[in-house]
Amino acid sequence: MTAQTGTTGSSAGPVTPPPVSSPGRPDDGSSRGRGDGGSLGRVGSGRRREGRAAWILAIPFCLLFLAFTAWPVIQSLFMSITDTRARDLRHPFGVNVIGLDNFTKALSDPTFRKAAANTAYFVLIGMPLTLVVALAAAVALDKGITRFRAVFRLGFYMPVITSIVAVAVVWRFLLQDPGGLINTVLGWVGITGPNWLGDPNWSMPSLILMATWRNFGTAMIIFLAGLQAVPAELHEAAAIDGANAWKRFRFVTMPLLRPTLLFVMVTTAIGYLQFFEEPFVMTKGGPLNSTISLSMYTYQQFGFGNYGLASAMSYIIFVVIAIVTALQFRLLRERT
């Protein structure tokens, strides 16, 4: 620590490393310099100087944050109880407060309900699938093999970094019927593949498949980090006690992986509950609204100019996300 201080500070001249108990280390929020007597004369002005410097550093962020994050969050809440429409943009005071009408309207809208059901379908199938694939890949890379680990890790992670629009272009070709690559490959083994994106029964499974392909890499990397934190001694001890590979995984690895699992579940669920881009670029919500999602329907209402209604819907999504997150914390925290 001191050595590092010396080298970095040396550009400005010789440095005497300060005593550890010197003032000005407000790491625990206690006001600096109080009660430890060192260099009393500097404390008052130093503290003011520090406060001023801190604000100079904080101001740019705070201004941008207020304008582009905090204010929209509040305005969205306000809009959700008004009948704001696109044409009210120029007359912001012409809107009427209509209470919770937007919320009741959204919740009784059959398309909104359909979108909610689709989103639930996507999350309930897509999230476990993504997690299982990611965990399997992580376990295989962590314990099963010793060579080419980096290559596999890199390859599996690649879809994560790619643009959804570009991916959609490619996947539309792959899923084409007839003549798509996937149905051609299925044809080799004698299976007649369905019209993936054109059949209302298969459109959602297609999107789930694509989302899993595109997202399991992130979960895999986080699982890998979690797995590598499991002490090898525990496995050895369990092996001595006669536990086979599956039992070691189930009773040694899994309990220790619980925090990681919780984290991955929560972030995946939050992402999937907002799923939007896949149907937007692949199916436009069709066929027969079979892939329209909550976020996408909200966006459509925005497109129609129904800003108040769209805001109400966005807050409904937010509340659902908050509830699902809280539930997951409960479920996975309890038994630790």
Binding site: F68, T298, Y299, F302, S314, Y315, F318, I321, T325
Partner: peptide
């Protein structure tokens, strides 16, 4: 605000 989904701020942001 870390947990607030992007869809919430989208409309007001556009208006702004």
């Amino acid at each position: 605000t870390l947990m607030i989904p992007g869809v919430v701020t989208f409309v007001p942001l556009f208006v702004l």
